[in-house]
């Protein structure tokens, strides 16, 4: 493999020579070095539930999460070697082989991926991500130029090998990117843009807090914070803004 790496990058568009000298194999092998190994993962992943539930549907068998799902569902979670859910393993799993004696007795032996602890700097999140990683991932991250680029690559192989941890980081990064894009040219982060063009600088939690006194007053009996959140915490930013607008809320303090 190493001697293949030492070859200079051969241009792919050389149809005349490739057939004769086998250059094509050489050039593709150079690509193989950085290829994500995902074949096992796609084989051993369970299908996820992609049903979009609506009010009035039958209650499904699965338990309803109390606070809802925080992250999107990941379709390539393998059914074994679960520690890869907690780190960035680049799709590496435990491999098995047989030690074969001269008399033909086979002894199973297992090979774990080379895993180290690492702190990776995320440009978008502006913080260190401390996880266990496989050394293969460190090489891949170097090649991609940072953990963000590594995670945000959209090739199917990359999506399959980043694992749950990577998938969640990816979601965080993309959300942060959206936020950054929205609040460009502003000193404070902008969480929502109203139809009128005004930009809301309050988080969803803050909006919920602002709505609470209105809902409290509307109810005949006093309601607790808990029951209020049970009925309102799942509302989207847009819906909360609409609710506040209906009640004549003055947005001047939380808009730019």
């Amino acid at each position: 493999m190493n001697f293949l790496r030492s070859f200079p990058c051969v241009p792919l568009a050389a149809p005349t020579t490739s057939a004769q000298t086998g250059l094509r194999t050489l050039s593709s092998s150079a690509v193989v070095c950085g290829r994500d190994k995902y074949f096992k993962i796609s084989k051993y992943a369970r299908p996820i539930d992609t049903t979009v539930y609506q009010a009035g549907d039958d209650v499904p068998r699965q338990t309803i999460p109390a606070d809802g799902h925080k992250y999107p569902k990941y379709a390539y979670e393998p059914m074994f070697f679960k520690r890869q859910n907690r780190g960035l393993y680049a799709g590496l799993q435990r491999r098995a082989s047989n030690l074969c004696s001269e008399s033909g007795n086979k002894t199973k032996s297992f090979h774990l991926p080379n895993v180290v602890k690492a702190k990776l700097w995320s440009e978008t999140l502006n913080k260190l991500v401390c996880t266990r990683v496989s050394t293969t991932l460190l090489r891949n991250v170097d090649r991609e130029g940072g953990i963000d680029n590594y995670l945000l690559k959209e090739k199917p192989a990359r999506v399959k090998t980043i694992g749950i941890k990577g998938w969640q980081l990816k979601y965080d990064i993309l959300k942060q990117k959206e936020l950054n894009e929205r609040s460009q040219g502003s000193d404070v982060p902008i969480y929502h843009i109203l139809e009128s063009g005004k930009k809301i600088t309050a988080t969803k939690e803050k909006l919920l807090e602002l709505l609470f006194p209105y809902v409290y007053r509307e109810n005949y009996e006093p309601i607790s914070q808990k029951s209020y959140l049970r009925d309102h915490s799942w509302l989207t930013m847009e819906e909360l803004v609409v609710k506040l607008e209906e009640r004549g809320f003055d947005f001047s303090e939380i808009t730019v």
């Binding site: 979009v52 539930y53 609506q54 009010a55 009035g56 549907d57 039958d58 209650v59 499904p60 699965q62 309803i64 999460p65 109390a66 606070d67 809802g68 799902h69 925080k70 992250y71 999107p72 569902k73 945000l152 959209e154 998938w167 990816k170 979601y171 993309l174 959300k175 990117k177 959206e178 049970r230 009925d231 799942w234």
Partner: peptide
Amino acid sequence: KKRELTEGQARRLNAPQMPLSVEQ
């Protein structure tokens, strides 16, 4: 007994979607 999902329960069951990347 057949029970139906409320609005809140349905929303909690639905996971968020992964935002689209620039290339997408």
